[in-house]
Design a protein around this nucleic acid. Structure first.
Length: 225
DNA sequence: GCGACAG
DNA sequence: ATCTTGTCGC
């Protein structure tokens, strides 16, 4: 699935150009209620080697209960370069996804989608390569600033690139730093934010999907060492 | 030229 | 990403 993977930054930039062009940014995708299986993906790294572990956790959207999960371990094939995160995280994530018995209706990534210098963040890559509706929820600012969202859960502020809205800072918990939502493929920003709020009815800042995937990939990495 | 910079 | 100590609060 990820043979001909770029080895150099120049190669990666060429792939990104193709990915960005292939992204479907017009399909509004599933609204909350229309998606039953929502998957979260994450990757953990060993600090003393190039070993890594990826995890996918599929939740029942209505109850947030775990329906299925899968992991994959391997070695990093690409360094961490801001703007090229997809080339580091995608191979293990795709391997983990291949372990599922059924494709989810929607995938939530840890990181950015459209709100990326070349409109090609992790969520765009994952959506295009799998064909699945996909969006990203990042924990820290990247390249786009924003006005301050209000203090209440659900308050938002646009992530702006000039006059273009590329994402949204979304307060998922009152008085706590917002998360950064941006679409990847086959999902609207409104739907992505609505899903993010539904997935944070757990009282935490981060979506339940990413929390579960984060715990699972850490455990998988520990076992693999 | 220099700094900033998802995970 | 990863390491880390204490601290506050339900």
């Amino acid at each position: 699935m990820t043979d001909d993977w770029p080895e150099t930054e120049a190669g990666a930039l060429a792939v990104q150009e193709r990915i960005a062009r292939a992204a479907d940014l017009t399909d509004p995708g599933p609204a909350p209620g229309a998606a039953r299986l929502i998957a979260g993906v994450d990757v953990a790294y060993d600090e003393h080697s190039d070993r890594l572990a990826a995890a996918v956790v599929v939740l029942d959207a209505a109850t947030l209960d775990v329906v299925e999960q899968a992991t994959a371990t391997g070695r990093a094939r690409f360094p961490y370069v801001p703007g090229l995160l997809a080339f580091r995280e995608l191979p293990p994530v795709l391997d983990a996804l291949a372990g599922l018995s059924a494709a989810p209706d929607l995938v939530v990534c840890d990181g950015y989608g459209l709100a990326h210098p070349r409109r090609a963040g992790l969520a765009v890559h994952l959506g295009v390569l799998t064909g699945l509706p996909c969006f990203g929820v990042a924990k820290t600012p990247f390249v786009y600033g924003h006005p301050d969202p209000g203090p209440a859960r659900g308050d938002t502020a646009p992530l702006l690139d000039g006059a273009e809205t590329v994402g949204r800072a979304l307060r998922t918990r009152a008085g706590v730093r917002p998360v950064y939502v941006s679409v990847g493929h086959r999902i609207s920003l409104d739907h992505a934010c609505a899903h993010t709020l539904a997935l944070t009815s757990n009282g935490f800042r981060q979506p339940e999907t990413t929390r579960r995937a984060d715990h699972l990939c850490r455990a998988a990495l520990k076992d693999a060492l």
